[in-house]
Each structure stands twice: as C-alpha cells, then as structure tokens.
C-alpha cells in the first residue's frame, strides 16, 4: 500500500511545489495515459487527473489516478459533484484510497451545457463545500455521511478550488475560508492571468489568516497558440483571459507562438511566485505536457526536490 501524500510532505516542509494537469484520455488502452504521464515524470511533484473536464466525457479520474499510482507517479484525483450523488462520491473516494490515491481535489465542475452531453441531467446532490466536509469526515471521524463507521479510514490530503477572478469578488476569500473550515488542506486556483487582481485576493486571504491554514497553489496556463488563447477566452467558463494576451500571441508568427506561450507562462509564474502565501504552482498545458516541462525548466524549478526517504515522483522507491 502506497505511503502518505508526498505532496503534503513537501508543502508541510515549506517547499515550493509544482503540480500539473494531465490531459485526460479517451482510450481503453492504459498506455495512452502512461505516455502522457511519462512526459511529466520528474518535472512535477504531483499530477492532476481531471474528472470529465469541461463536462466532456473522458476516462474516469479514478482510473487515471490509479494508473499513475501503478507507475509511481503521484496523482491528485479531481472529483466533481456534477456527475455523482453522495453515495457514488463516497464510494469513489473510498475506492480511490484503497487504490493508493492520497491527494484529492473536490469541486462543483463545469456545467453540462458547456460539454458534449448538454442534454444530460446534472446531479449536484451535494455541493463542493459539503463534499469537502464529507471527505474530511471519512478521514477524521472514520464515518460516512450517514454516520455509519468505516472499517479503515482513508488518509486524504484534501484539495479544493477557488476562482479569485469571478464575481462576487469580495465574497471569494470568505468562500475560501468556508472550504478551509470544511476541511480543505490545499487550494488550486483558476488560471491566473490578472496578477494584480490575484495579489489583491491573496492579500484578503492573508487578512483572514488563511495563508497559515491552507496551501494555496495558483494555476498557470500555457497557451500554445493564438487560437488556443482565443478558445480559452471565449469557451472556458470562469476564465478571464485578457485581450492583451491574445493580441500578443496574434502578433507573433505562428511558428513562434508556442515559444511565446512558454514565455508568457514563465512571466506569470515568476510574478505569482513573489506574492506572499503562494505555496506552489499548478501548470496547465492544455493537451501539451511538453509545455509544462519547458515552463518548469525555464522558470528554474527543475530538478524537483527529493524528500527522504520518499523519492521524487518517478524516482526509485
């Protein structure tokens, strides 16, 4: 049985962590997932497995996370309350724990109307805040929401998300506080493009005393092309991509746009790193694992630390 969360140990040790999002696959062949994950091996501390991202069906995050565990790459399993009721959510959480998944990130999820099954029934039996409390209850009290006792409690490192850029802006830090009170150990934010607005959010979060209670990991997007940046601006819910960023890529010759995208990501990363309370970065390459590695390299974040006696992701066990 795999040990505790390495991500948790790094963060508690005060290391600046790097996580990344793995492109979800549509293949019954596990090699498809492993090929993408291998690109990230050694360049990040843990890898997010998304749960029907953008409300499009893909292989389950639970299965992807387990495939990573098998290869010694530490997963962060995302779980939304969009597609499952409270029974299925708890069943999957316990199953994930048994399969070696230690890090989870719990969220509402993009609405079905933006996905490939817009006619689907959305579930939302419980909300993301309540799911955090449920997962914490399974871990800390060893019970299901019903009160029934687990034979063995899971040892989750519980993550949640926040979008510092979506209205109501003044409520966002208080909502984060609610998540921390519910049991969140770490937060991965929506993609940061507006650094001053993010700094303002972090200062409000700091005023609430939350930076001492929760590890906050902002997300950095790596645009691969002007087209990709336009897509993010127009199609992804809750994402506020500034026109100046799209313009900058559009003015770059197509052959050099991906390099410009790396440069943009590195600039954003270096800017958010300076903000007090930032515990690491989450890199989102959007079907571009190589971009993640290039950004980590260019930002001077390689090699990733080794935490004895545990090895770096993918290192020897």
């Amino acid at each position: 049985m795999p040990g505790p969360s390495r991500l948790a140990e790094l963060l508690r040790d005060g290391r600046f962590v790097v996580t990344a999002e793995l492109t979800s696959t549509n293949s019954a062949d596990p090699e498809a997932t492993w090929r993408l994950a291998e690109v990230l091996r050694g360049s990040v501390d843990a890898v997010n497995c998304t749960d029907n991202t953008g409300a499009h069906v893909h292989m389950s995050s639970l299965a992807a996370a387990h495939l990573l565990v098998e290869k010694g790459i530490e997963p962060i399993m995302q779980l939304t309350v969009r597609d499952r009721n409270r029974l299925a959510l708890q069943a999957d959480l316990l199953g994930a724990a048994a399969l070696g998944v230690r890090n989870i990130v719990l969220m509402s999820g993009d609405d079905v109307t933006v996905g490939d099954h817009p006619e689907a029934r959305r579930i939302y039996d419980i909300d993301s805040m309540q799911l955090i409390e449920v997962a914490a209850g399974m871990r800390d009290r060893g019970t299901y929401l019903s009160g029934r006792t687990l034979d063995q409690a899971p040892s989750f490192f519980i993550g949640a998300v926040e979008n510092p850029f979506a209205p109501p802006l003044e409520f966002r830090p208080l909502r984060l506080q609610k998540k921390v009170r519910a049991g969140a150990d770490f937060i991965q934010t929506q993609l940061v493009f507006d650094v001053p607005l993010f700094a303002r959010f972090m200062s409000m979060v700091g005023d609430l005393g939350l930076t001492d209670k929760v590890f906050i990991i902002p997300s950095i997007g790596i645009p691969r092309s002007a087209r990709g940046a336009r897509f993010m601006r127009e199609k992804v819910p809750g994402l506020h991509v500034p026109d100046s960023l799209v313009d900058r890529l559009e003015k770059t010759p197509p052959a050099r746009q991906s390099q410009e995208g790396i440069q943009i990501a590195v600039e954003l990363l270096n800017a958010v790193r300076q903000i007090p309370g930032v515990a690491g970065v989450h890199l989102i390459g959007i079907k571009w694992e190589e971009g993640v590695v290039q950004v980590a390299e260019a930002a001077g974040l390689l090699p990733r630390p080794t935490l004895s006696p545990l090895a770096t992701v993918g290192g020897s066990r």
Binding site: M107, S108, D110, D111, Y124, D127, S128, M129, Q130, V161, E162, N163, A166, P167, P168, F171, L174, R175, K178, Q190, P237, G238
Partner: peptide, 9 residues
C-alpha cells in the same frame, strides 16, 4: 449550490 457561487460566474 447552498454554500456560495461556483467558479463559472
């Protein structure tokens, strides 16, 4: 949602 807005606002 009974505990606050989602991230999609």
């Amino acid at each position: 949602l009974r505990n606050g807005p989602c991230g999609g606002v």
